[in-house]
Structure formats: structure tokens, C-alpha cells
Write a protein that binds this DNA or RNA. Structure first.
Lengths: 201, 201
DNA sequence: GGCAAAATTAACCATTTGGTTAAACTAATT
DNA sequence: AATTAGTTTAACCAAATGGTTAATTTTGCC
């Protein structure tokens, strides 16, 4: 009944590095800290991954090679713009509830090194925007600025996770309260989307 | 006609420290970098402000001792909840256009050291929320969850500045384009607020 | 068992970095 | 001019940190 699977050193390093880098960012992370968390010698980090830079890059790329392709595929299940945006909100908030440090990690990295933006596949956004114009012609949506609109929806999904420390203090919420608020937020954002997109008349 | 005002060393340090800390955060900033930017010897930093910690704390506190009291006062000019929220959006986005690094600075600092949240006066938020309930009784607003609503409005105001590097790359915007988008965003957010709050009937 | 290759470690190194010290310079005071 | 207090600097220090090396242990293979 016991689990004797041996965990490879490489995956132990990756798990530890992910945890440390996501919490503390590049500058705030120490190689020693990662080694300790992985339960290995610091030199092994350099044996498997050449440098701190290389290890960081690996973690960064891994985090996006998983989610974005799946998001893109899932969004194909929705046909109209409104449906696509709703589904996007649901999937994105769902991901962030499981990975609450992700937004800060991305923002932080891109602020220091904007070149990393190229590692994030953002074509999905363009594709969703495209559906707006077809829907508009078919008069299935109210006329609005779709760029501003998408920016708003993304903001509503992501920002709460970034402002959690401040927000929880301001209105006195526990961690559990916050997670429940985020669960409820999925429906909240969807409701907003529907109100804002519904065709007039 | 020339300006011979001597700029005090202390204010030169503060200006330099603000610039460096806001761009790079605590971990990413070097005391030497601040000294260079201020055009002085590094030891002078410690002569005027004891340590990196002390200097950082000073900068952090200064940034909020200006804006929040003024915001609170300005918001008194608005009476209804809808007006207050609209004015808040206008003032906040206006501030951020002038201080685009501020959101990242705050988020970054609070992620690493949540205790700093106590240095940010958040009572304004509670006061605005209070107006919602009085307006609801007078049937001047649609019934909704005001916490989620405020979270959405704040998100729409702040998040674009955080995601600028990614967003500009995704839809291929220049810095100037982005600033124009943010200018237009004030009216955009106001429009959303009105649509979402307008009483039914 | 013996051996070579891979994995792992302890000890070390060079650089960076926040911080200190003692000396030098400046400006006001007498 | 001499004295003194405040300001500024060059040189230095200790700790932290990313990275390396050479030796040791483990593993797979004959």
C-alpha cells in the first residue's frame, strides 16, 4: 500500500525551484533556498541546470507550456464571443485559484525583463477578439470597444489575486474567505459580461 | 533667469531612491545605484538614512501620505455611490498615468512583506462601500454584491498598468498608444459603472 | 567482484553588496 | 585666523551569493 516511487532529482529540483521562484521572484530567490527545499546539495542545481538564469527560464517556460494550449483548445468549444469570454473567465479564475502566485510571478518577471513576454503565447487573445467582429456583424453583441472590454474582463479575473494582501486587510478577510470570494467571482464576472454585451432592444 | 536654487542632498537622495525603488523594487535595487543617480557617495546614504530598510520604508510611506488624503477629500464632493465610484476611477487612473510604476511597486512590496499593508490607508474603500447601502435603501442603485463590484472597478483601473508589457506585446501597441488607451479608459470605466449600477425599471 | 559512468557532496572561490570608519573638506562662529 | 560642528569621501569590512572543483558515493554493466 505504500508509495515507493522514487522521485527523480531533476523533478525535485523543478518542484522546489517553482515554489521558490513563484513566491519570491528572481531577485528574491536564493539558489541555496531551492537546494534546501529540494533536499540536495547546491552544486547539484548547477549540475542539472547550468545557472540560476537557466533554471529560472526553464520554470517560466514550463508554467505556460501547460495552460495556454489547453485554454486555446477549450475555447473552441464556445462559439459566440460572449460564450468565449465567459469560458475564458471561468478557466482563468479556476487556474488562479489553484496557482495564486502566478500573476505576481508573471508581472514581476515582465517588469524586470520585458523580453520574457515573447515566451507567453498571447495569440488566444487575438482569436477571441476576432469573434467579436463576426458577432457584431450578426448583431449578436452591443457595439463597444473590444480592446477595452477584453482588458476589463482580464483585469477582473487577475487583479484580485494580485491585490489580495491589501484587499484582505482593507475589508478584514481571512484566506478562506478570500478563496470563497474568488469562487463566487467566476459567476460575478460572467454576469458582468452578459450585462455589458447583451444587444440592445 | 537661471535657476540657482541649491537642491539639498537629502531631497536628491529621496528623488533617486524613489526612482530606483519604484522601478526595481526592494530586492532589485542597489544602494550604489541610488547613490550614483543622486550623484553622491554611497556612505552619504547611510549618513542621512540609516539603512536600506529605513530608506525604503521612507519612500513607501511618502508615496501614500500624498495621494490618499487628497482622494478621500475629493470623494466628498460626490454624493451618490455611482458618483463616488466614477470619481474614484477618474482620480485613480489619472494618478497612475502620472505614476505608472506605482501599482507594481505596491504589489511587489506587499507580496514580500504583507505588514506594509498597514501603512496604506484603506478606510476610503469602506466609506465608499457605506454609501452603497444608503443608496440601495433609497432604490437609487440596482441590487448587487458591492464588494465584488468595488473589486471589479479597482481591477479595471489598476490592472492595465500592471499588465502593460504583456498587453502591448500581445496587440502590438507603442508606449504612446498605451497612454492614449489609458486616457480613454477613464470614460470606459465610467460607462461600465453606469451600466452596471443603473436601477432597473 | 570489478569497473566505468553518472550522481552527489564538501570545500572553495570571486564578486557583489549593505554597511562602517577614519580622514578630509566646508561653512559658520568667535 | 582658529575652532568647531556638520558634510562628504575613499578605503575598507564582513556577510551573502552564484558558481566551480575535485573528491566521494552510487549505479548500471560486464
Amino acid at each position: 500500500m505504500e508509495n515507493n516511487e522514487k522521485i527523480s532529482t531533476e523533478s525535485k529540483i523543478l518542484a522546489a525551484a517553482e515554489q521558490v521562484f513563484l513566491r519570491s521572484g528572481y531577485d528574491g530567490s536564493r539558489m541555496q533556498e531551492i537546494a534546501d527545499l529540494a533536499g540536495i546539495n547546491k552544486a547539484l542545481l548547477h549540475y542539472y541546470f547550468r545557472s540560476k538564469d537557466a533554471l529560472f527560464e526553464k520554470i517560466f517556460e514550463d508554467k505556460f507550456s501547460q495552460f495556454f494550449p489547453r485554454l486555446q483548445e477549450e475555447l473552441n468549444h464556445a462559439t459566440s464571443f460572449a460564450e468565449k469570454v465567459c469560458l475564458y473567465a471561468e478557466l482563468h479564475i479556476g487556474l488562479l485559484i489553484k496557482n495564486p502566485y502566478l500573476p505576481h510571478f508573471v508581472i514581476n518577471t515582465l517588469q524586470k525583463n520585458p523580453d520574457f513576454a515573447q515566451k507567453i503565447p498571447t495569440e488566444v487573445l487575438m482569436q477571441v477578439l476576432q469573434t467579436y467582429y463576426t458577432d457584431l456583424e450578426a448583431q449578436k453583441v452591443r457595439e463597444l470597444n473590444p480592446v477595452q472590454f477584453m482588458m476589463s474582463v482580464m483585469s477582473m479575473c487577475v487583479f484580485p489575486f494580485l491585490s489580495k494582501p491589501l484587499f484582505c486587510k482593507a475589508i478584514n478577510l481571512s484566506d478562506k474567505d478570500f478563496e470563497l470570494l474568488m469562487q463566487a467571482r467566476i459567476e460575478e464576472v460572467k454576469r458582468y459580461i452578459k450585462v455589458l454585451l447583451e444587444p440592445i432592444g
